[in-house]
């Protein structure tokens, strides 16, 4: 995903002389093409994220379209107040990219896990919180975000994530999309972890259980029309899936959404996410997903338990 990000940024910079990429001293060779294409539009801001985020809002208030890029904990909670005051309160068109989100850097430990970023950022007025499932969804969202007159946070993975979307015409911000049809259960997810849900759906199908899988693309704004259309399909239950803590993210957003629906139309939502604890026994992303029940087996077990 990060390579697709770098490539699309280069493409956008070739057309927008007011696009500026701020990096927190990461992406060693990744932005070589960008720098070649738009040398004056790249700034390595060093390991100083508070300054980088305020600086981005200053740029945005002066006609620029800044895109801030570093590893998720450092571009979100590290500079939270700068996001709230500089970007969001000023309604500044700042695009914040968190790379290596969730458990992408699992083996680097809790300092590099981001399992609270969506929960915290969605509480900030006017800030859009996105989590594309694959590079195509990311590109569509990025193209919209750099033209939008307000701040956007986009939470992305690392590298090697599979393409999950089949209908590329309906990608963008606040766009729910079915990735796999099903009629008994519906899994609504965000981010690359949806690959685990698709795998689970295939296995369940062989066992006679039908699981639909959808990407919501983000948690704020949430695609109200898409959810309403899903509600009409009368699934037995909805399952939320996110590589994020169980508190405050997609699952919570869906519960909030459902609570506004009239009682007779409500259906059960089962949340799958990272439990409310720090992870001490480390392994790679595959290991940790499995251990926490976020992999395809974990999803299957959860659905069978409903």
């Amino acid at each position: 995903m990060r390579d697709a990000f770098a490539k699309e940024m280069t493409n956008l910079a070739s057309k927008m002389n007011n696009l500026v990429l701020l990096s927190g001293d990461i992406g060693n060779r990744m932005f070589d093409e960008f720098k070649k294409t738009a040398p004056n539009q790249f700034v390595n801001c060093g390991i100083a994220e508070a300054n980088m985020m305020s600086m981005a809002s200053g740029l945005a208030l002066s006609g620029m379209r800044p895109v801030v890029y570093t590893i998720t904990p450092f571009t979100t909670t590290r500079c939270l107040e700068q996001i709230k005051v500089g970007a969001a309160y000023h309604e500044a068109p700042v695009v914040i990219i968190g790379t290596g989100s969730g458990l992408s850097y699992s083996e680097l430990g809790p300092t590099h896990h981001s399992l609270e970023d969506m929960a915290i950022l969605r509480s900030i007025p006017g800030l859009r919180v996105l989590a594309p499932a694959d590079k195509n969804e990311l590109i569509a969202q990025l193209r919209e975000a750099v033209k939008f007159n307000g701040p956007t946070y986009i939470r992305i993975g690392k590298k090697g994530e599979p393409n999950l979307h089949t209908n590329l015409n309906n990608l963008g911000i606040c766009q729910g999309n079915l990735l796999r049809e099903g009629d008994q259960y519906l899994l609504l997810g965000v981010g690359p972890i949806l690959s685990e849900a698709i795998e689970a759906s295939k296995i369940l199908e062989e066992q006679g259980i039908s699981l639909g899988v959808a990407s919501l693309g983000g948690i704020k704004p949430i695609d109200d029309n898409f959810l309403k259309s899903m509600l009409k399909k009368k699934f037995k239950a909805w399952i939320s899936l996110e590589e994020h803590g169980i508190i405050g993210g997609l699952g919570t957003a869906l519960l909030e959404w459902m609570s506004e629906i009239s009682l007779d139309k409500r259906i059960r939502i089962k949340r799958i996410g990272v439990p409310d604890k720090f992870i001490h026994e480390l392994g790679n992303q595959i290991y940790t997903r499995k251990k926490l029940g976020l992999d395809s087996t974990g999803i299957i077990n959860t659905i069978k338990s409903l």
Binding site: V43, S54, G58, H90
Partner: peptide, 25 residues
């Protein structure tokens, strides 16, 4: 008024961004 300040330590980095915008543009 160019920027909302009051939380200390924000104004200078924002001014820095504004000055950088002048250079790029």
């Amino acid at each position: 008024v160019e920027a909302a300040t009051g939380s200390l330590g924000h104004g200078l980095p924002m001014a820095l961004g504004m000055a950088l915008a002048a250079r790029i543009l």
